[in-house]
Each structure stands twice: as C-alpha cells, then as structure tokens.
Design a protein around this nucleic acid. Structure first.
Lengths: 345, 345
DNA sequence: TTGAAAGCGGTACCAG
DNA sequence: CTGGTACCGCTTTCAA
C-alpha cells in the first residue's frame, strides 16, 4: 500500500503548472533573494494552495544531511527525569526543522550499539547521550568521536574525555542536600546510594564535605552503596533495613535517588521510626513520587527539561558550525526542595 | 561541519573497486536470488570489510518510503503506561528496519498538528496514536484517514469510526476491579474518575454493572467525575475529601487511575480512615507508584508493552499490504493485581 | 533574474 | 546472471 506521497505535488509539478523552471521554484521556496518578488509570490501561493510539502528524502539526499538527531537514554520512560530531558531536546529540534529519534539503551549501550549501528552510521546528524559507565569500555564513545559525529552528553559524561556536556554539579547538590538535613536538626546522618558510578560518587563526596564541615564526625560506615539495583530491589530496602537496625540513633538520611528514599521510608515505617520526627530524609531528582508519597519527600530538583534544551542547543551549534567548535561544559543549577520528610520538629 | 557520511562508501564505490556494475552490487546486497553466489559473496565481503551502510535518504527517495513510523502520545514520559507502549512499538519497528519518531501531543493534538504537519505529509509511512477526545473535532483523524496514511490507534480509539485499534476492555476491567472490592468485603463502594471521556465512561459502566449484580444498591451520587485534572489537582483530592466526609460509611473505592487512588488514600489518612481496614481501594494502570505507595495499592494491570508491540504489528501489516486491508480490533487482556490497599480484614 | 543540466545514492527496467 | 541507464525530488553550479 502506497502512502500519501502519491497525492503530494513536487517542485517539478509546480514548475510545469507555472511554466517556469524547477530551479526557480526551488529558489523561491527557499526564499532566495535573487528571485523576482513577483514570481516568488506566485510560486509560494501556488505551493500553499496545493499543499506542497518538500520531500524529506530528496532534500536529505542532496544536502547530505539527515535532518535527524538521536538521543540515547538509559530508560526513556520509567525514568521521569530522562523524560523531561527528552521534552527539552524535542522542543529545540522542532525549532530547527529536525526530527528526533529516541533510543532507549536500557543501561546497556554496548548491547544496543549493534542494532542501532545504521543510525550512527550516517543515519543521524548528531547525537545526544548519557554516558553509561557500567565499567565496560568506552569504545562506542571513542568511535563516535573519531567519526566526528556531533555529540553532546547530558546528565552523565565520560570523566576523562574532552566532550561537550550539560550536567549538574552533583557534588555541590549532595553537599546542599546534606546541609539541608543538618539545618533541619539532624546530627547523625547516613548516605544511601546506588552503584558506585561517577554521579553517585560525586553526590556522596558532597555529603562527606558537608559532614566534615559540620560539628559532627564523618563515619564512613554510614555510607551505603547498593551496587546492583536488581529488579524489585531498586529501593535498596535490604541494606536500609540493616542500617536502621544497626544505628538506632540515626536521625537523618541523604538518599542519592528518590527511589532509595522511598524504600528507606518504607523500612523506617515498618520499624516504627517516625519520619520526619525521628528521622529526616532527603532524596534526589524530584520525581513525581517524592511529592505524592506519605510523607512527601524532600529532594533535589534536577531541571531535566532545561538540560535537554541546552544539550540540543549545543548540538545544533555543532551541526551548523563550519569548522570544529570547542567543547563546552554547561552546568545547570539545582536546588533543594524541602518537603515533609525533613521538617524541623 | 559535515557528518560522517563522507567516510562511508557507496554502492558505486564498491562497483568500481570490484569492476562490476552498481546494479549488480545493489542486487547482491539485497540478497537477490538472480546473482551468482560467488559474486554475491565477493560483494558482501567487500561491503562488510569497508563498513558499507546503505544511504537512508537515497533508498527512501527511490522506494518512496520513509522507513519511519510515528507515534503520537499525550504525554511521553511522565506517563508510565505510554512509556511502555512506546517500548513495544520501538522494539517491533527495529525488527522491520524502521525508525520510530515519538511526538508528545501534550493532550492537545489540534495545537500540535500544525507543527508536525510536515511529518504527517509524506514524512512518515504510518502512524500509531491515541485518540484525544477533548471534545474538539476529529478533523485531524479524518484527514489522516482520507490521505490513506496507515493508522492504528492504541489505548483510545475514536468511538464511531472504523479504524484499527489495540485496546483493552475498559468496561470489563472496571467490572473486575469493582468485583474485587466486593469480594474483599466492601459493601458501599464509590467510584472516582477523571474526565468523562470514552475510557473513563466505560470503566464507570463496568463499576455500575458490578454493583448492580451484587446484593447492594447502586447510588449514582457515589460516582465522581473530576472533569479538569488541572496541574496540582491530578489527584482529585478536593472531591475525594468531600466524598469521604459526606459518606462516612463508605468502605470501598474504585479509582479509574492510580493517581486518583493515591490522592484518595492521602485524604483518607488525613481523616484518620485506615486503608484497607476501614476503606478498601483499587486503582487502575499499575504505575510504579501503586506498588511503592504506603500501603501498596491494588490496581488493574494494563499491559502497555504488549499493546505497543501489537499496534506496531498491525501497522506494519498495513504498510506492507498490497491492497487495502480490513480494519482490525485487538483487545488485550487485563488483570487485577491485588495489593495491601484491598486486603481482606 | 531565470533556464538547463548534472548529480546526491539507490533501485529497477530492459537488453544481452 | 550481469550491464547500461533512467529516474526518485531536490539543490546547485554554470550559462544565458
């Protein structure tokens, strides 16, 4: 079954109808200044009247551009934050007349890379991606850089590579979150985190800095990493339970994700520890659940939409640049959102 | 800045190198049976060795196919269920060598339709969409049908149009959910819903059927519609609060979305009504939050991934059909997931 | 200011 | 089984 292309008119059709040359039509439709305004007007009117739409493939072939960018994200949808990034990217792409492909890598880019190879090989004009640091090699990133595919990282970037990126200051954010707990009156504060990746390590570092600057002592036993957030245990409840049992005097927890905070509060409730009266909690990312939970969970807002917009902007400046542009790092500001879970008694 | 296309070899390059005709190379690479297997082998080896990638635009232009489908969804990401649909569609698309564009309509297709017009006009080979019944006209749908763009609806379909669709039996699902509450011991059951759209009306109808079949009487005052789920009030808490105040003997609630169930439980807690002991609740959709909430919320599972896969399958059968194919309706099975919020006392 | 023609990279037809 | 060639729709030289 043929698609609607059949009904669409082409530049040649317009040319024939108006008894002028296709090249003139082309020029007129792209607003070339060398076309007489009267003919330009005539052509444009005809085009609109007959619903002319430029053929995507033809222009793409001629211009050697795909007019398509691609964003690689770990989890497109279950992960709200990435969703917001996506919206930002898409908004900007639309403005540039680009389409945006979304590829969920499911946290395993190396696996996916084969399936999406055709896209990366001339299928897209540029790529926005999160760096996946599951300990494996950076081959794919190096390949992209070598092939000079315009590339911008968002949220997570490879630490030792000179690349453009839009990130937050995770250490500072962790620092502010922990400080918030201290200011709310917590004295013995633990930190529960996901796997030891770039992001989490920095957030934890911020936590350590805040504690060290405080009147209290840092106890590294209070730092918990959940290396494998396997299905059903994204909440880190097993380790949180142990933590609360072992340290009954604990009165504050900084969780590096809202999910972990949720799990912790679930566990605390079961042990009849009241939040926030006996235990103050802050999460990270400002997912919808942190607002909906009982009690609502204090968190750090990560402005995903803004980050996506900015990343796309950087990408398009690369795509349209006539020579190599310098790699830029943009750091987006975050802020603590205080809610019930860290209320002062 | 040029992209990586420059480094890629073309069919002509291969032909020149191997001193054979481009057409033969083309045939070999598409596994045509009329090419001698020895030359075919030679060509394929050379192609792989030199990392040949077919030019997307060129093939698209020649074949008059975009090799791109598009999925229109209300909210791509904040909405988990749509996210799952998306994954299903994308998986299938990849298998067919297609790319998949995602367009969030933000519940306002009429507004977006102008911006995405170029995509719909020859930009894509087919479209999967949710029907947006915000009371406005169906012009866009009719346009798509008139232009014979292969089209499949998912989740929500226009009620009076002969179209292909992948849906669930909302009435039956509402019926089963309500029955679940009855079986859990609830005797006075309310139903809180979002706006009066096709979906919600059917779920409510299912509720009514279940009540009517029970030993209890239907009281239509116990059916609440939240016509406008405005920002910050997606939870329907204002009306839920009134409901609980007015009917203190209420001991069961069927909410047509998990969000509404969440809001209801929040309200109940504030009024010191214990869930599930005094009030049994069931939601709809099985969002992550329903599992994470305290108490965890019983719900109806809507298999989004499966629905997405099926929708894409229907779409591709239309796209590849040589003549008009009949419109198909696929109904995907749902099931009640019992959790804490509806536990038997 | 406009026209003519070449060509982007594939595919498909017609010959041989 | 393979070669030659036209052409998909558009842009872009070069001429006029």
């Amino acid at each position: 079954m043929n698609n609607q292309n059949d009904n669409l008119i082409t530049i040649t059709d317009i040319a024939r109808a108006l008894k002028i040359n296709p090249s003139t039509v082309s020029r007129a439709l792209s607003d070339s200044s060398i076309v007489k305004s009267s003919t330009k007007k005539k052509i444009k009117e005809y085009a609109i009247k007959h619903n002319y739409q430029p053929n995507f493939a033809a222009r793409s072939l001629q211009k050697k551009k795909t007019y398509t960018i691609c964003i690689l994200l770990p989890k497109v949808v279950v992960h709200e934050f990435f969703g917001k990034i996506l919206l930002g990217v898409q908004r900007k792409a639309q403005k540039h007349g680009y389409r945006c492909l979304i590829l969920p890598t499911n946290y395993d880019l190396n696996h996916e890379i084969n399936e999406i190879k055709n896209l990366l090989n001339g299928g897209v004009d540029g790529i926005i991606m999160c760096y996946q640091s599951d300990g494996t090699s950076d081959d794919h990133v190096h390949q992209l850089i070598e092939r000079k595919i315009p590339l911008v990282f968002v949220d997570i970037a490879p630490p030792n590579l000179k690349v453009s990126k839009v990130i937050i200051d995770d250490m500072h954010a962790g620092y502010m979150a922990t400080k918030h707990l201290l200011e709310a009156g917590a004295s013995q504060i633990a930190c529960i985190s996901g796997p030891r990746n770039v992001i989490n390590l920095q957030r934890v570092q911020g936590y350590q800095k805040a504690i060290n600057e405080s009147e209290f002592n840092l106890n590294t036993d209070l730092i918990i990493f959940n290396e494998k957030l396997i299905e059903g245990e994204q909440l880190g409840m097993v380790r949180s339970k142990k933590l609360l049992k072992k340290y009954p005097l604990l009165n504050g927890v900084f969780a590096t994700t809202d999910m972990l905070a949720t799990g912790l509060i679930k566990v605390a409730k079961k042990q009849n520890i009241r939040v926030p009266e006996e235990l103050k909690v802050i999460g990270f990312s400002n997912w919808a659940i942190s607002m909906l939970y009982e009690p609502s969970i204090s968190t750090v807002d990560q402005p995903g939409f803004e980050m996506g917009m900015k990343a796309a902007q950087l990408l398009f400046s690369k795509i349209s640049a006539t020579s190599t542009v310098s790699e830029k790092t943009v750091i987006i500001k975050t802020k603590v959102i205080p809610r019930e879970s860290s209320k002062v008694n």
